[in-house]
Design a protein around this nucleic acid. Structure first.
Lengths: 145, 145
DNA sequence: GGATATCGCTTGCAATTTGCAAGTCACGAC
DNA sequence: GTCGTGACTTGCAAATTGCAAGCGATATCC
């Protein structure tokens, strides 16, 4: 199977062909990357995990973002077999590949503003080992299925 | 002078202390990073340069974003001494420091979607030399003042 | 096994933001 | 002094956001 055939979203109608524009049309809003962060760094996987995050996302917006992120192929959604009321959200390969973007945004913000969570920032300074660790953790959660 | 004293924006009221949240409150919208891209990659410096970009930003939104980016300290604005109708917008140090973020977003989008401008993508693959070149060009434009 | 709680949403609605089009106003060119 | 240009501002309809309340399916308790 060709990699191309696996893309979830055919280019759609983009305002321009610029890859940066494509990225921004997918995750260029206030909330999408925070949802990704919660999954990647805080291990969030249930609806309530995201709702209770520190930024207090509104429930209708959360539902909308989860839907869009799934459509785009950044996350996958599945019913929890242990508790059928719950759904489990997971990062896909495309989703975990956003890690370098998050790292650079965090490092940029931390070096130009007064921000919290300095331990996280410090651990990100060694990008290579941070990314390796993140990817390893993600692989592990896939094993656990 | 302490570095801290140079910050343009005292933390403001953020939804959370997370550096990623801070970054998103500053540039987490559809347009801000496209404006930065136009300056960084296309050498845009006048209002019309941005207006005529391929994504066709609306004029009121452009004015708003230029104002906000200047407030935050990502760009600076100055009257053109050659033609006093014009204003010249330039990236500050904080603005040019966004280059790694742009690079990672472009590389991510290009490897998960069908996008245009492959020459740019290819040149970004060697991140280190790409960033060095970008920073050098930025320094040059400052010399020319 | 019927009442109660929990989970993941949806709905209503006001307020803000976006996007397009049409000005406006200072300056420069002729 | 008239005309064009550059950088915006204004008006307005449409879309998006944010908050609160509700709802249906599933689990838990007694």
């Amino acid at each position: 199977m060709l990699a191309c055939a696996m893309r979830r979203t055919p280019p759609a109608t983009r305002r321009s062909g610029c890859p940066l524009n494509a990225a921004l049309e997918m995750v260029g809003d206030r909330w999408s990357l925070l949802v990704v962060r919660d999954m990647m760094l805080r291990g969030a996987s249930h609806y309530a995990d995201f709702l209770n995050g520190h930024e207090r996302i509104a429930t209708n917006i959360l539902a909308d973002r989860l839907r869009k992120l799934a459509q785009i192929g950044i996350i996958s959604a599945a019913r929890d077999t242990q508790d059928r009321r719950k759904r489990i959200y997971r990062l896909t390969k495309k989703g975990i590949a956003l890690a370098p973007v998050l790292v650079e945004m965090v490092l940029w913000a931390a070096s130009h503003e007064a921000t919290g969570n300095q331990p996280l920032v410090r651990s990100m300074r060694d990008k290579k080992s941070f990314l390796t660790a993140i990817r390893a953790r993600w692989q592990d959660t896939l094993q656990a299925l």
